[in-house]
């Protein structure tokens, strides 16, 4: 294989922290993990939290800091959702890896503790059976292996596994942390972002640093080294405020056909309905001229539509349903239908 070119990596990879101490915003995690690295007394760990907050980064950094490069392959097993992790793999592959004996002792500045690390990234997509099969494995080899589980949803990890681990919640990054990391990348890449653009970038990526970096790279390629807040909005897929407003006004008007037309044009523009719902939600919640009761009725339907979308329901009909319900709430039309039952 040819050596990997650093320059051919997208920025998200280029700026992935190599050391635990460089992981931003996850102070508690960093503190505990750094301690661990010093004493090399490592518990099983479970990292959970939303996308792009540093979970995989941290796990890989720990592994790389513990073992010197030559040892890495024999000491660290990384399995993610792209590997088959059915029961059989858990039983055989992990077992084989875990069973082989290890030596210990500090070597060349690396702690090299006397155990192996098994990183199960995206563990929430493992079946319950496979997770159950892991319980035994974890116990049998507890002396010589440490497991790192990584997932977005902790509720998908079965309790017996979760309770064996030290749990770390990765928080969505705050605007300040996001801005400072982005500013650092801007300096490295010779980009120019004013403070408005910086705060826009933080707010549109909603605590997901990977998304922010991708937007930044997109904007840099498209609009050159001086990037404005508008450029970022254009690459981000955020729906322009006017379009959200147009739908909201149509709902207020009480005219079904008008609302249907807006819904049709939103779909034709290709705006993701999930995005529309979240922006419409913000607009409704902040509206002064909508009563709490109306807001409750409107938002309840948002939740239903969101669930249906996750189930795979069509975007047009769901948005139309939301628009119709919103209209009925805003215009005090009866909530109950008169003819169906």
């Amino acid at each position: 294989m040819a050596p990997l070119l650093q320059s051919s990596q997208p920025w998200v990879e280029k700026y992935r922290p190599k050391q635990v101490k460089d992981v931003a915003h996850q102070d508690e995690v960093v503190r505990v993990v750094t301690n661990t690295l010093e004493t090399t007394n490592c518990p099983h760990m479970l990292f959970y939290g939303p996308p792009g907050t540093g979970k995989t980064t941290t796990a890989l950094a720990i592994a790389h800091q513990l073992f010197r490069p030559e040892l890495y392959k024999s000491r660290v097993l990384e399995l993610n959702a792209s590997d088959d992790r059915g029961i059989n793999v858990v039983r055989t592959k992990i077992k084989n890896f875990a069973a082989a004996a290890v030596g210990s002792g500090r070597q060349g500045g690396y702690p090299c503790p006397p155990y192996k690390i098994i990183i199960l990234d995206e563990a929430d997509s493992m079946t319950e059976d496979a997770q159950n099969a892991l319980r035994r494995t974890m116990e049998t080899y507890s002396k010589v292996t440490r497991f790192f589980f990584i997932c977005n949803y902790i509720s998908r990890i079965i309790e017996p596994l979760a309770s064996r681990c030290a749990k770390f919640r990765f928080k969505p990054l705050t605007d300040e942390v996001m801005s400072s990391r982005i500013s650092y990348i801007c300096r490295e890449e010779g980009l120019n972002l004013d403070s408005k653009a910086l705060s826009t970038l933080s707010s549109i990526s909603q605590g997901d640093l990977r998304q922010a970096i991708t937007y930044l790279q997109g904007a840099a390629r498209l609009f050159g080294s001086s990037i404005s807040s508008k450029d970022l909005i254009r690459v981000s897929g955020v729906i322009p405020g006017e379009d959200v407003q147009a739908l909201f006004s149509a709902c207020k008007s009480g005219n079904f056909d008008l609302a249907e037309k807006e819904v049709g044009s939103i779909i034709a523009e290709g705006y993701p309905v999930s995005q529309m719902l979240s922006q419409l939600y913000d607009m409704v919640v902040e509206a002064d001229d909508v009563s709490d009761e109306q807001k409750a009725i409107i938002c309840k339907k948002f939740a239903e539509a969101d669930k249906c979308l996750v189930d795979g329901a069509g975007e047009y009909l769901q948005l139309l349903g939301v628009a119709s319900n919103t209209m009925r709430a805003l215009c005090n039309m009866p909530q109950e239908f008169s003819f169906g039952n």
């Binding site: 079904f256 189930d311 139309l320 349903g321 119709s324 209209m327």
Partner: peptide
Amino acid sequence: DSELKHEISHWAAYYEHRLRL
């Protein structure tokens, strides 16, 4: 009629969702 439009589009969305499941 506009009154019925709300009701019918509600059920269209309802059955389309079911159809996916």
